[in-house]
């Protein structure tokens, strides 16, 4: 199943089950969504529940907040995380605060979905990874979806929650096929161990999970070690229990993230894990992140600016050899 189809299925099932679930955003209705995530919903549920909005992101989120306060469960789509910058006032000053400032009396059952990340030559303004901007705001949940299971089950849980959720997707994953099962158990508040290992833990999320998995066997063979791979999953709250348990076992960890290293979300993971595991560590942690530059348009420069499977392999092998592996 395609990643976007898993998201579509989650929306469809929730809308069918609960008529308070509504979808709103730019081109989500008649056109079926810029990345076809909402395809077919307009025909099935009509224009009252699948709402095409003007190109006005702050209003989209603001409207969704109003809907949520009024008893609906809105799922707002922001075409890409880059455009969510226009909605930051509503996200940061209203969405994240209302539950807290009302002493929990106001429920805010809403989701703001958006894709992010480098696709292919969409240039600086359309290629950003901005998870840190959302994850640093207390009062909102930040979920990530790296495959069909996390997309489907994660989005369904996000819609059911009475807290506001930023639901991060990766644009390049929409057209990827992943294994899917409705029955598979997935808790979007937990990190997932994708592969067990003894000597090193690699943390990543969204598309980087797949880039890591592409080279994990080669890393194991070159360094003659066994590697544990963990999809971090929720960025806020972090599932520190799973992350630190793994590091206490393997004694080494690497974080692979697409966003720039300076202020990138990996720094938050690193400090949280390090505080818990310092005396268990056998090597300094390593962050493999994007370069501290706007994403270039030129394809070669674009690939130089973010982690690739080749870079992940080389950097981990070098780091491993320098640090006793």
């Amino acid at each position: 199943m395609l990643y976007r189809e898993a998201l579509n299925l989650a929306l469809d099932e929730m809308m069918e089950k609960d008529e308070t679930v509504v979808v709103l955003g730019e081109d989500v209705g008649f056109y079926g969504g810029n990345y076809r995530v909402t395809e077919g919903l307009y025909a099935k549920y009509g224009e009252r529940r699948v709402i095409d909005t003007p190109i006005a992101e702050n209003s989209i989120v603001g409207t969704a907040i109003g809907m949520a306060l009024g008893g609906l469960r809105p799922v707002a789509e922001i075409m890409t995380a880059n455009f969510a910058m226009l909605a930051m006032d509503q996200i940061v000053n209203s969405m994240s605060k209302l539950r807290y400032m009302s002493g929990g009396k106001l429920l805010l059952p809403m989701v703001v979905r958006m894709p992010q990340g480098v696709v292919k030559q969409l240039a600086s303004q359309h290629s950003q990874s901005l998870e840190s901007m959302f994850a640093c705001v207390p009062g909102i949940r930040v979920f990530t979806a790296s495959d069909c299971i996390t997309a489907y089950h994660g989005l369904k849980t996000a819609i059911m929650l009475d807290d506001p959720v930023i639901f991060l997707e990766h644009t390049l994953l929409y057209f990827e096929k992943f294994e899917f099962s409705k029955d598979s158990f997935y808790n979007p508040f937990k990190a997932r161990v994708l592969k067990e290992g003894k000597d090193l833990t690699i943390f990543s999320y969204l598309k980087m999970v797949h880039d890591v998995m592409k080279v994990v066997t080669q890393i194991e063979n070159t360094l003659n070690i066994s590697v544990e791979v963990i999809d971090v999953g929720p960025l806020n709250p972090l599932d520190l229990e799973t992350l630190t348990n793994s590091v206490k076992k393997t004694k080494r960890f690497v974080i692979v993230e697409e966003n720039p290293k300076h202020g990138g979300f990996g720094a938050t993971i690193l400090s949280a894990v390090l505080e818990e595991t310092f005396y268990n560590l056998d090597a300094p942690p390593l962050r493999i992140a994007g370069e501290d530059t706007p994403i270039p348009y030129n394809r070669k420069l674009e690939l130089l600016a973010i982690p690739t499977p080749e870079k992940i392999y080389s950097k981990i092998v070098k780091w491993g050899k320098e640090n006793g592996l």
């Binding site: 268990n280 560590l281 056998d282 090597a283 392999y313 080389s314 070098k318 050899k321 006793g324």
Partner: peptide
């Protein structure tokens, strides 16, 4: 296809003073 570097990856030798050890080694 994914092409990984074939040549040996160069390692930088760190010049560190005695008593340098990983936390778990010290414990």
């Amino acid at each position: 296809e994914l092409v990984l570097p074939q040549e040996e990856i160069k390692v930088e030798v760190k010049q560190l003073p005695p008593a340098t050890a990983s936390p778990v080694a010290k414990v």
